[in-house]
């Protein structure tokens, strides 16, 4: 009805940061659960973590770090008014995100094949620690993967807007916010990776 002609980039950016804080708290809740159960079942968590593939984990970490760089670079590109490189860098980011999901698919697939799924008989035999470890593994990486999917959608819309000329060198806050979201997804993985794959 009104206030439509009003544009305040700083407000949008503060809003995005506030949203990022809610995401941090969301995962903080899960990290609390993880640390409590790790503290209570140190041996089982230690052994269960060895079931996870360090190779897949490291590969996905590298993929996310590179994608985080490309999306950061796309901001530099758009501010220089270089639409072509902006779209290229965003495209690479999205492809890397898809690669992450493909890896995740194979990794999950292998676990499911071995019966390491919540509620399975195998886990019941393995005991409480393993049940909790794999429950948390699927829940936390699953929630993270969900955020990756949301990120892909957001970045695709950003890419579309750059192509349509709605994001330009003097109106780039949407790209900036999309980038911030993507970095957040990266930061969460930076913590998930050692907690599940490395601390064995």
């Amino acid at each position: 009805m009104h206030a439509n002609g009003h544009r305040d980039d700083t407000a949008s950016k503060i809003g995005m940061w506030l949203f990022i804080f809610t995401e941090m708290l969301l995962f903080a809740g899960l990290f609390i659960v993880y640390s409590v159960y790790r503290y209570r079942n140190p041996v089982a968590f230690h052994l269960a973590a060895e079931e996870l593939s360090t190779f897949f984990g490291t590969l996905n970490t590298v993929i996310l770090l590179i994608s985080s760089m490309t999306v950061a670079m796309s901001l530099t590109a758009i501010r220089k008014g270089d639409n072509k490189h902006t779209m290229l860098l965003l495209g690479i980011t999205i492809l890397l995100a898809l690669a992450f999901l493909v890896n995740k698919y194979f990794e999950w697939g292998a676990k499911i094949e071995h019966g390491l799924v919540p509620g399975s008989e195998t886990l019941k035999e393995l005991g409480h620690g393993d049940t909790l470890f794999f429950g948390l593994y699927f829940f936390m990486t699953g929630l993270h993967a969900f955020h990756i999917i949301i990120g892909i959608i957001i970045l695709s819309v950003v890419l579309h807007f750059v192509r349509k000329g709605r994001i330009t060198s003097d109106n780039f806050v949407f790209l900036e916010n999309g980038g911030l979201y993507w970095h957040l997804v990266d930061v969460i993985w930076i913590f998930l990776f050692p907690l599940f794959y490395l601390i064995t």
Binding site: F27, A28, G29, L30, V36, G119, T131, L132, F138, F139
Partner: peptide
């Protein structure tokens, strides 16, 4: 609010998938 959000999500996951997050008979607290 996000903390209760994730907690409620875990209760929902618990009911659907039987994960054992807060179930003492499965090691949960």
């Amino acid at each position: 609010t996000p903390v209760v959000g994730i907690t409620l999500l875990m209760v929902a996951a618990e009911r659907i998938l039987n994960i054992g997050f807060f179930d003492p008979s499965m090691g949960g607290d």
